[in-house]
Design a protein around this nucleic acid. Structure first.
Lengths: 245, 245
DNA sequence: GAGTGGTCTAGACCACTAC
DNA sequence: TAGTGGTCTAGACCACTCC
């Protein structure tokens, strides 16, 4: 293990920042360079190391802040709801509707929902936050006949899960889901307010009504890897080490 | 979108490298700096951008080479076998046994396997390759009574999946599995021959015999994110856009 | 306007790899 | 031994955010 300057600085800062609550503003590059008596390149390398380890969030012109990753659990027996999932992890969820347009279902979406291409649907585009930090961005596709009143309903209740329960009388559950790590394109980076090329999750899910099996919606959502630690569980929850049985 | 120098260089190189077969050696930092008439910092930023996008692999003192990510599919209906999974993705798998020691099952492993702590087991530690590039590293835990002859068998056949089939008469399948993205510790980085702090997958799985349901082994495996694009599927394969039906 | 992170120059030395 | 990527200095200008 090389004993480089920036690595030494990074390790120091890791232990210092570990005791700070998430969201605390910390020293900037210039200050770190001065404090440790190094050039800005070394100080910058140290800060970028912390960012790579997802321990801080850096905002151009704004500063550097301690960060916390939230667990986003995906499994067959958990509700397919952003609010529920985030709340279960101990954070505060929030969603903002960017658009809700009537559009024909694209080919790939129609396939996922077992519909004919060009059937009428709604594309609900939202940005979601954990503790008021942007964490997720993406589309929800709902066939019009599943929920004709979606555009008006979404103005009063931001949880699609709740709307489906209350207005469509459905109990949404995951029919299938697929997750992978990708690299943020320009469009995704803009939606997530991160940099192009940052690591992001792509989660695609099809939800159905638990009682009837009817397919309800298709979700294509990007999630910032520095905001959420997506954990995908197959075949029931794997018991964790500190919760035996 | 900012029109920075390094971004312009990176975009140029992306389109140039796209036509090269994986593993091709490409120009180094110094050469890029000269070619585009920029300082080394700009050239370096461009190369690091390509590395972040997982398009190249860089080896200290060795050079920069074009890279390719292999799909590693995990779902209930796929065989829990490294060789099979890699071969299915069109690459050549290889595994090297680092150690195979008789050890008491640690607490957490015993819990996963439904055993009492401190029962006798084997810890099989291996490094695995795709197209001769290090891609995975981790442990397989097998209770001794499942496969007493494992240490000798693994000397002749590198696939644990095959050994379980042939010598234990079992048909291994995934009982449960759990995947997340983590940041490489020093130990993991050494096992994967990557840098500390690089993004890596952690995949933990419990495998059972399809016929009897008997739990066979527990796997804790780290996978380089730049080598494999892990895709996790829940509730059956989600049909892809170009394979409707 | 002050401070921040992002970009960039023109050098330098080093450890490492390949030959 | 030549070339590579990794680290580092001591400056600089910029766009951006916060106040």
């Amino acid at each position: 293990m090389p004993e480089t300057r920036f690595r030494h600085i990074a390790d120091r800062l890791v232990s210092e920042y570990a005791e700070l609550p998430p969201g605390t503003k910390v020293a900037g590059e210039h200050e770190i360079a001065e404090r440790f008596g190094v050039g800005r390149a070394a100080a910058r390398a140290a800060m970028q190391e912390l960012q790579r380890r997802m321990l801080v969030r850096r905002i151009k012109g704004g500063g550097t802040y301690t960060a916390k990753r939230i667990d986003y659990m995906i499994s067959a027996d958990r509700a397919p709801s952003w609010s529920r999932t985030v709340r279960d992890a101990g954070a505060v969820p929030r969603s903002v509707v960017l658009s809700c347009d009537p559009l024909d279902l694209p080919h790939d979406v129609a396939v996922h929902l077992g519909r004919a291409p060009d059937e009428a649907g709604y594309r609900l585009r939202r940005r979601s936050f954990t503790d008021d930090l942007p964490a997720s961005w993406g589309d929800e596709w709902v066939p019009v006949d599943v929920l004709p009143q979606l555009p008006t309903a979404i103005r009063h209740e931001s949880s699609l899960h709740e709307i489906l329960r209350q207005m469509a009388g459905a109990s949404p559950e995951r029919a299938s889901s697929r997750a992978s790590i990708e690299v943020a394109s320009d469009e995704v980076a803009e939606g997530l307010e991160c940099a192009t090329g940052d690591p992001v999750w792509l989660v695609e899910s099809v939800n159905r009504d638990a009682a009837s099996g009817r397919l309800l919606c298709f979700t294509r959502r990007w999630i910032r890897a520095d905001a959420m630690r997506v954990v995908f569980e197959l075949g029931g929850s794997v018991p964790s080490a500190d919760a035996p049985g």
